[in-house]
């Protein structure tokens, strides 16, 4: 787990996606091949840090590894470049959550393994409404 996390650190820390050099379509998670034009030529690019909530849920039964964090608010956010990203929504009262709510990117702890184990960091979103 630690190695697979390290491998994706730029994705998790900076929301580094990619862009097709032929048709300028942008992707997060990064695409291997452009889904619109099929081009193999894509370059890494940071995604915008603001967007709006397309849908969300308040998860009360969490997976192994996330014990003690429930409830977790998970959303799909459309960034200002149109790309959709899945992430947790934090620091927002549950009754303020709404589809269409503006959000911005924040850097947070995702989870840890134990008092002495790996700590995993990455992006989450916080609502601006």
């Amino acid at each position: 787990m630690a190695i697979s996390y390290w491998r994706r650190r730029d994705r998790y820390y900076r929301l580094l996606g990619n862009r097709c050099t032929q048709c300028n379509s942008e992707y997060y998670p990064p695409a291997y091949l452009c889904r619109r034009c099929g081009s193999e030529s894509l370059v890494d690019v940071e995604m915008p840090t603001t967007g709006q909530i397309l849908t969300y849920t308040i998860l009360r039964e969490v997976m192994s590894g996330f014990e003690g964090q429930q409830p977790i608010v998970i959303g799909i956010v459309q960034l200002d470049n149109g790309v959709k990203v899945l992430g947790q929504i934090v620091d927002t009262p549950l009754d303020a959550l709404k589809i269409g709510c503006r959000v911005r990117l924040v850097f947070r702890k995702i989870r840890d393994e134990s008092n002495v184990g790996q700590i995993y960091y990455g992006y989450k979103f916080t609502a601006l409404c």
């Binding site: 849908t55 308040i58 997976m63």
Partner: peptide
Amino acid sequence: TQFMGASFLSLNGM
């Protein structure tokens, strides 16, 4: 998806 704590249930909730 999984890394962020989003279970299969949560995807269907959304």
